[in-house]
Design a protein around this nucleic acid. Structure first.
Lengths: 196, 196
DNA sequence: ACCATTCATTATCTTTTGTTAATCTCTCTT
DNA sequence: AAGAGAGATTAACAAAAGATAATGAATGGT
């Protein structure tokens, strides 16, 4: 039984896949649905799983020394989600993935994707493009920590991600900005009062 | 006249280059030497130049709204140096590169490198490796801003980069850590006094 | 409709950082 | 050797952030 949603997503991923690769990817690619508040990945996970989010919103968090959850990033529709710990560092994940909304993902095996790319040199451009875009975002984020105050970071964040703020509790946004939820609340008040 | 240093570096870069590619790369690759305090790149630069640092130390900085220089990173021996603005964002550089020590670099043209890689599929693994390592570092740096206090960031920085601290003025390290030089000085004092 | 839970806000206090300027040290230059 | 300049430290004050706890508001489940 063919899942047309799945085919559609895979088609978007690469226009140059040959038939046998599509078959391999289709076999390894699984559509999964999660209700809100469900884990996609827990600490210690080692499965090289790459998610493509079709719908919904997922937050990634670590547990710090004090035992608190610290959200390091969030991902939503049409974004790729994977644990850097597993994919880049080749270590068990210290990250958890937990849905904030009901979420549909396409789950793929990283090693299978890599094999398919090495069989299809035309896909290298895609890989380079994706990697570079992830790197771009990372560099922008580093610079925002160096160049801007927490208040400026917040303003730029909501400007760059309109709508998202309304889908995610402030305390997670605070973590992402590197400040405490209490501090973010004060910043919001400061902005609201100086605007009038 | 063949520059053996140049050949050595290029040899290290890829074990799978064919002769004509080596020739192309040799032509585009230039050894350059800079005294301390010299610019490798200034704001507005658009040349897609990639440096491999053979010896020395370079800092990258931006000018913020107040007109201050803000150092965003430093690179030294055996590291790759390039302007993300130019290479990733395809925009004129807002970054300056300025040497902190007398520095020898191998300068290469980014587009030439890309062409050579597409002619040598075996080099794709190299490119992927390099890109992934840059991404790794970026992610670690982001996490250090989110998870650690300025004091912890400083301690981790000097631990991860022993020796470098003695080659670079503290004020640049402070920028890299996202704090002011005055604050770093206080942190250093705090560490020194609580240790005894 | 109610309770419980989860967030956001507010309050209070402590700690840290930013800002500006002065002082001190060191190095390099002439 | 003297002076200039750069960088680090210190001081003094203001502003912001962290920590902890209490209060409000909203939400979801039964």
């Amino acid at each position: 039984m063919i899942d047309f949603e799945k085919v559609k997503v895979i088609y978007k991923l690469g226009r140059k896949l040959n038939l046998s690769d599509v078959q391999v990817l289709l076999q390894s690619a699984i559509m999964k649905s999660f209700p809100s508040g469900e884990f996609l990945l827990k600490e210690g996970g080692i499965k090289k799983e790459v998610f493509f989010i079709r719908k919904g919103l997922v937050r990634a968090f670590k547990i710090n020394d004090k035992g608190d959850e610290i959200t390091t990033f969030i991902k939503w529709e049409n974004q790729i989600l994977a644990s850097p710990d597993i994919i880049l560092f080749n270590e068990p994940s210290q990250l958890y993935f937990k849905t904030i909304e009901p979420t549909d993902v396409l789950s793929m095996d990283y090693d299978v994707i890599q094999t398919i790319i090495s069989n299809n040199p035309k896909l290298e451009a895609n890989r380079k493009f994706i990697l570079q875009n992830i790197l771009k975002e990372a560099i922008l984020r580093i610079n925002s920590f160096i160049l801007y105050s927490p208040e400026e970071r917040y303003l730029k964040y909501i400007e760059a991600n309109p709508g998202i703020v309304h889908r995610v509790p402030d305390k997670y946004i605070a973590n992402i900005l590197g400040i405490t939820p209490v501090s973010l609340s004060r910043i919001r008040k400061r902005i609201a009062t100086t605007r009038k």
